[in-house]
Amino acid sequence: MSVINDTKAIVIGMWTTWKHIFRRPVTLQYPEEKRIPYPRYRARIVLTRDPDGGERCVACYLCSAACPVDCISMQSAATEEGRRYALWFRINFSRCIFCGLCAEACPTMAIQMTPDFEICNRDIMNLVYEKEDLLIDGCGKSPEYNFYHHAGIGVTQRRGAGLEEKPPVDVRSLMP
């Protein structure tokens, strides 16, 4: 009978909630107790450096294109030796939703997410991070990767001296 079934359902439900009253709460008392996030946790964004210390970011605009909330802006420029870099690079953390799409889009592993989630601030302008605030001294994840050794444009090395590259072709060579 449905009345019996319904009553049973209600009673089972009541029993379940009754049991939960005596369970240990899962809540963590945040400011006093802190949970340590996993290394791949997606919080404050940083800009990392090459193993040899150069800025990894080439200001290719892919992160700002991937960003669903448009919180990344930058201006690319070139150094004397032709290295492309970000003249300025700005992340507005008051807009950022920490989705990690920027880090996923980054072809040079420059932009990375860190587990540092405590960046709250009373003045919203303090949440607008410039390149000086974002750039760290280190490689973060993938410590051995250097984009310029892979992309055949010869900025950090002679042309044709990168990984997987032959020396430049001489068009007037005698060899066929």
Partner: peptide, 12 residues
Amino acid sequence: HPHDCPVCDEGG
């Protein structure tokens, strides 16, 4: 191809 789209102005 050098696979250097990030530093290529044609990229996109």
